[in-house]
């Protein structure tokens, strides 16, 4: 694929460019939606900034956690070649689930700080997560990272210019499958918001939808350097926890509605 494009005298990674495109669409959606969501523009954007900061920190922290054995093995690099150490272990590598939970924590901190309700921010902020994520996955496809298993099929892709994927074998473009799935999830969330579905339910739909999707897609991924706990990858373990949280939200909402109906 095309890992970089040359702009302004710099090699711009396609991943960054795609993520930035997703960011623009996300900001556009907030601008379209914030009035109907009942939040002020300032609160919507400021919470988004907190969420973005949380996403960055969370994605990096989880990445460090998954790479901990390599980091410990290479600690001596800190003395011999600190620049390389930081280049390898700090500047590269982010994990989506860390970003998701970091973003939720960031928004929660904002809501708590200014004494606002956390779930009120789901509308309009929640669909921005899959919007940015879906564009980011297209970026992964361009970079040739997060690649799928080898396939002997017409839809197999040779990542001939990738610095990461094997270049001599056709691979399943699992990045595009995930991107398509996450775009659908974003569309579903947007429809739910325009139908004024309860905000806890919106979060539950996202957690269940993405948790299941990611759990399944992990079986088709071939980049084995992601950390495993037993037979499951770390992302699959987090997917299971994510689905449990989604179900708990659904059950909680169901009980809440049930009690309200009994009172009436």
């Amino acid at each position: 694929m095309f890992p970089y494009i040359h702009l302004f005298g710099k090699n711009i990674p396609m991943y960054s460019l795609m993520a930035f495109t997703g960011l623009l669409f996300a900001v556009g959606y907030i601008l379209l939606r914030y009035k109907k969501s009942g939040l002020s523009r300032d609160d919507s954007f400021f919470a988004f900034i907190y969420g973005a900061a949380g996403a960055l920190a969370g994605a990096k922290l989880l990445s460090i956690f998954t790479m901990l054995p390599q980091i410990i093995r290479n600690l001596d690099l800190l003395q011999t070649d600190p620049e390389l150490f930081f280049q390898v272990f700090l500047y590269a590598g982010f994990v989506f689930y860390g970003g998701l939970y970091g973003a939720l924590l960031g928004v929660w901190i904002y809501a708590r700080h200014w004494k606002l309700a956390f779930f009120d921010f789901m509308d309009p902020l929640l669909p921005t997560v899959p919007i940015i994520h879906a564009w980011g996955r297209i970026g992964c496809f361009f970079m040739g990272c997060c690649y799928g298993i080898p396939v002997d099929a017409p839809w197999g892709v040779y990542f001939a210019r990738s610095e990461i994927a094997p270049t001599d074998v056709a691979l399943l473009p699992v990045q595009l499958y995930e991107s398509a799935g996450v775009f659908v999830l974003a569309a579903v969330l947007i429809v739910l918001q325009y139908r004024h579905i309860q905000k806890r339910m919106q979060l539950a739909v996202y957690l269940l939808g993405y948790g299941v999707m990611r759990f399944v897609l992990e079986f088709f991924r071939y980049d084995a350097y992601r950390g495993f706990i037993g037979l499951l990858s770390i992302s699959q373990v987090i997917s299971v926890l994510t689905v449990i949280w989604g179900m708990a939200l659904l059950i909680g909402q169901g009980l809440h509605v049930g009690r309200a109906e009994i009172r009436e």
């Binding site: 991943y15 590598g93 992964c140």
Partner: peptide, 11 residues
């Protein structure tokens, strides 16, 4: 250079 979702592939 960042890649959300692919922990440490570059690393």
């Amino acid at each position: 250079i960042a890649c959300i979702g692919c922990a440490g592939v570059f690393s």
